[in-house]
Amino acid sequence: MTRTVCPPQSAPAVRVRGLNKNFGARRVLADLDIDIRPGEFVALLGTSGCGKSTLLRILCGLDTQFEGEVAVPSRRGVAFQAPRLMPWKRVWENVVLGLSPPGSLADAASVLAEVMLEHRAAAWPRELSGGEAQRAALARALVRQPDILFLDEPFAALDALLRLKAQQLVARVWERHGFSVLLVTHDVEEALLLADRIVLMCDGAVACQMDVTLARPRDVSGPGFGAMRRTLLAWLGVSGDV
């Protein structure tokens, strides 16, 4: 199932070469190379502790203690596992926080409408449900018109139904806006539902990759889904049977 990725036609949106990172004596990222093409949806899959969150923090610019070559777009949107909304700012103020020139309520409203949260623009974050808060965080990432969206397990804290809705929402905004996405997840089905390409990380390096050629919109019961799922689980060292 492993295929070599097509050579990029244009300059990659993300280009990482020979990335190394140590926490004390422990090597977290080991000579990691990765490219993400403009508009490509990449899912980064791996067991916990494989270094995927560390890689994401470096790509977001939050961690600059590393060695190697890293190039990312300057317009980036980030959504974390926790919504991380400022509790002292109303939802719309959270959305436009950090924009320059400063964003208005109207700017926030249009992007909040996109995540179906327009009616909550004036609410305090504490008044939002978990799913609403996560959507507000997504709106905050989208308002920056990013060239790449970094998503760090953004659906992990949601219940199964909300997660499905949130995944559909991300697929929809990605198709509409055409930015690249790097989704860090440990959910095999989520990766298969959303990604063009799945990159499996192991011990701080890319272990293998898979192009997901399934037609969109995708369905866990669709043809080919089960086979890809079994392959991925085997790579992760798990048999798919319960």
């Binding site: 939050l62 980036r76 980030v78 974390f80 991380r84 700012k89 926080l97 950090g98 924009l99 320059s100």
Partner: peptide, 22 residues
């Protein structure tokens, strides 16, 4: 919460902006 400070930085807030808004 350090997570909020990080969020502020990913939103492009300057050092002064983090002080003021976070």
């Amino acid at each position: 919460d350090p997570g909020l400070i990080e969020a502020g930085r990913t939103l492009g807030l300057s050092r002064l902006g983090v002080v003021r808004h976070v």
